[in-house]
Amino acid sequence: MSRVYLIIFTILSIGLFSSNSFGKETVIIKYKKYEKFDLGELEIKGSIIAPGDLSTSNLDVRKFSLQIYERKKFDDHMATQLRSLR
């Protein structure tokens, strides 16, 4: 049993002392919570043929009007009246 403990202790100590951080600087990594991109400041090589602003403020809805029926004259009624004469 004591031999088992000795082997485990040896492996652990090798693992601890063989790390690269031993004798080096500690690096702390922090991730940014918010990142802003200013697309207007981006530079593109070549001639710009499209506007840089890709957003749309209002939905541009085109309203199509259908031709609604509205009576203009009573020619058909007059023709019916004539046909009903003697």
Binding site: V61, K63, L66, I68, Y69
Partner: peptide
């Protein structure tokens, strides 16, 4: 003709909604 009018009314309602 009433169907055409119905389409026109639905279009007007949608236009109002978007506006």
């Amino acid at each position: 003709r009433l169907f055409t009018l119905k389409l026109e009314i639905l279009s007007s309602q949608r236009h109002m909604m978007y506006a």
